[in-house]
Computed example of a mutant assay.
Amino acid sequence: MTDQPTKGPASYFPSIEKKYGQLISAWKDKVRARYPAKPMELVAMLKDEHQMGHGHANAIVAHTLAEDGLK
């Protein structure tokens, strides 16, 4: 069996951790601390408060919401 590459939002996680210096679990905690905000409000928070790029912020928010059954 061959290893399949990671797809979807999680495919960004290694570069997010490297670029922003925190584990994905820490970013997810930041997102969850802002519940029940709307998805784009959560993306804006990561961009505005943590200078994260839109694609990276969106990947974290989308994955976190899906994991929590909110999307």
Results as ranks from 00 to 15, higher is better:
Val31Cys: 09
Leu65His: 05
Ala37Gly: 12
Gly21Thr: 10
Leu70Lys: 15
Lys7Ala: 10
Glu41Asp: 13
Lys47Ala: 02
Gly55Gln: 01
Leu23Thr: 15
Val31Pro: 04
Lys18His: 04
Pro5Cys: 07
Glu49Gln: 13
Thr6Ile: 15
Gly69Trp: 01
Ile60Tyr: 00
Pro14Leu: 03
Lys7Gly: 08
Glu17His: 06
Val43Pro: 05
Asn58Trp: 00
Leu23Cys: 11
Trp27Val: 07
Ala66Asn: 12
Pro5Asn: 08
Met40His: 13
Leu70Met: 12
Leu65Asp: 01
Pro14Cys: 04
His63Gly: 05
Leu46Asn: 01
Gln22Val: 07
Gly21Met: 03
Ile60Cys: 00
Leu42His: 12
Pro39Phe: 01
Asn58Ile: 01
Ala26Lys: 13
Ser25Gly: 10
Lys7Asn: 07
Met52Asp: 00
Pro39Ile: 01
Lys71Ile: 07
Lys30Gln: 09
Lys18Ile: 02
Arg32Glu: 06
Ala10Leu: 12
Leu65Thr: 07
Val61His: 04
Gly8Phe: 15
Gly69Ile: 05
Gly53Asp: 02
Lys71Gln: 05
Ile24His: 07
Met1Glu: 10
Leu65Trp: 02
Ala57Phe: 00
Asp48Met: 06
Pro9Arg: 09
Ser15Val: 09
Glu67Thr: 14
Lys19Cys: 00
Lys71Val: 11
His50Gly: 07
Gly53Gln: 04
Ile16Met: 02
Gln51Val: 07
Gly53Glu: 02
Ser15Gly: 03
Lys7Pro: 04
Gln51Arg: 13
Ile16Arg: 03
Asp3Arg: 14
Tyr20Ser: 07
Ala37Pro: 09
Ile24Lys: 11
Gly53Cys: 01
Gly55Thr: 03
Met45Ile: 14
Phe13Arg: 14
Pro9Ser: 11
Pro5Ala: 09
Pro9Ile: 08
Leu70Glu: 07
Met52Glu: 01
Leu70Gln: 13
Lys30Ile: 08
Glu17Cys: 07
Met1Trp: 13
Gln51Phe: 10
Pro5Glu: 06
Ala57Val: 04
Leu70Arg: 15
Pro9Glu: 04
Thr2Gly: 14
Lys71Gly: 09
Thr2Tyr: 11
His56Gly: 01
Leu23Val: 13
Pro14Glu: 00
Thr2Pro: 15
Leu23Gly: 15
Lys38Met: 12
Ser15Asn: 05
Lys71Asn: 06
Thr64Asp: 04
Pro36Asp: 10
Tyr20Asp: 01
Tyr20Ala: 05
Ala59Tyr: 00
Thr2Ser: 15
Asp3Pro: 09
Lys47Met: 07
Pro5Gly: 06
Asp68Ala: 15
Val61Trp: 01
Pro14Asn: 05
His54Ala: 09
Asp68Thr: 10
